[in-house]
Design a protein around this nucleic acid. Structure first.
Lengths: 135, 135
DNA sequence: TTATAAAAGGATAAAAAAGGTCTTAAAAGG
DNA sequence: CCTTTTAAGACCTTTTTTATCCTTTTATAA
């Protein structure tokens, strides 16, 4: 339960790699894929979606590639995880009003809500500045 | 991310149902399935696996059915969730030594470890005595 | 302007997991 | 031995994951 998918793993490793490059360095998807041991075309898809939401910048053509969209300290683990895996929601019932008819009288709901807030809190407190630190 | 599967939902609802029955009452799988709105044959599979690990007792033949294997207060939410979903492991790398070659120098691992211990702690603290309470 | 480099986007597909059914066997009671 | 009820395993369908391939678009440089 609660396992990160490969997509999530590749995404995190990819962003860590970018965070470890000298500022301004543009990295090819082929470099990133090799360094993170991720399938290149798959990683490319992930980075395309990251470019759309501003986590990375992408540049086409000769000399193109990817850079981080913000400083590593301004990118949280939560943001990257949710970008690829969707929102952190331990129980379907929490998703939206009406999706669970047991809502009111169900004693399990508050437990999941607690789990959710704890996990979100932890992932929100970790930035890629820390994750990229070597040593 | 972190979503409980239907299997997990049915399992929890089924155990809550049993916990709400008068002590000693034997319930048919058909009753439990109807009450929890779960597919009967699917729920039967889940309860078979629960019988093996002692969460429930099963009785065949006329007058047979299922009862809780222990008092509701002695069954934790964690136990039921892990029985159907497998261990709570946010990152594959935590599963076993050697399954991740990045272990030592990886800064993400401690974060997942923290997530794991928080979630396990919460689910361990909730018993079916509380979950079965009505009102 | 032509060639080259690189990401973007779409279509497809294999593999795995989730979700569920069906059939036969075994146990218990009458 | 007949009925009721779970046990066990084979089987099937759908969805999600994990990719791959091909074409298009954008950018650069000769």
């Amino acid at each position: 339960m609660m396992e990160l998918t490969r997509k999530g793993e590749y995404a995190i490793r990819g962003i860590i790699f970018l965070a470890q490059q000298p500022p301004g360095k543009v990295s090819l998807i082929s470099e990133i894929a090799e360094a993170t041991e991720a399938p290149q075309t798959f990683l490319a898809k992930i980075f395309q979606s990251f470019a759309k939401i501003g986590i990375v910048n992408s540049y086409r053509g000769t000399g193109g590639g990817f850079t981080l969209g913000r400083s590593p300290a301004a990118i949280t683990l939560r943001e990257v995880v949710e970008a690829v895996e969707g929102p952190i929601v331990p129980n379907r019932c929490l998703i939206g009003a009406g999706s669970c008819d047991r809502g009111a009288e169900c004693n399990v709901h508050p437990v999941w809500r607690k789990v959710q807030s704890q996990v979100v809190g932890i992932l929100d407190s970790v930035t890629f500045a820390e994750l990229a630190r070597k040593g």
